[in-house]
Amino acid sequence: MTVWRGKYPLILASQSSARQRLLGNTGIQFEAIPANIDERAVQQSAALAGAGDIAAFLAREKALAVSMAEAESYVIGADQTLAVGQTLFTKPAGRQAAAEQLRALAGRVHELHSAVAVARAGRILFETIDVARMTMRSLSDAEIAAYLDEAGESVTSSVGAYRLEGLGVHLFERVEGDHFTILGLPLLPLLNFLRSEQLLAI
Rank of each mutant, 00 (worst) to 15 (best):
I54K: 11
A55I: 00
A55N: 08
F57D: 09
A59M: 02
A59T: 14
E61I: 02
E61L: 06
M68D: 04
E70Q: 15
A71R: 15
V75C: 02
I76F: 13
G77L: 13
A78M: 13
D79W: 07
D79N: 07
D79V: 02
D79H: 04
Q80N: 04
T81S: 12
V84M: 09
Q86R: 06
T87R: 15
L88Y: 06
T90R: 10
T90Q: 12
K91E: 00
K91W: 03
P92E: 08
A93W: 00
A97I: 02
A97K: 13
A99K: 03
A99R: 06
R103C: 08
A104W: 07
G107R: 07
R108T: 08
R108K: 15
V109G: 00
V116Y: 03
A117R: 14
V118I: 11
R123I: 11
F126E: 07
T128Q: 12
T128G: 01
T128E: 07
I129V: 05
A132L: 06
A132V: 09
A132G: 10
R133E: 15
R133T: 12
M134A: 04
M134L: 15
M136Q: 06
M136I: 01
R137A: 06
S138N: 01
S138M: 03
L139A: 05
S140V: 09
S140N: 11
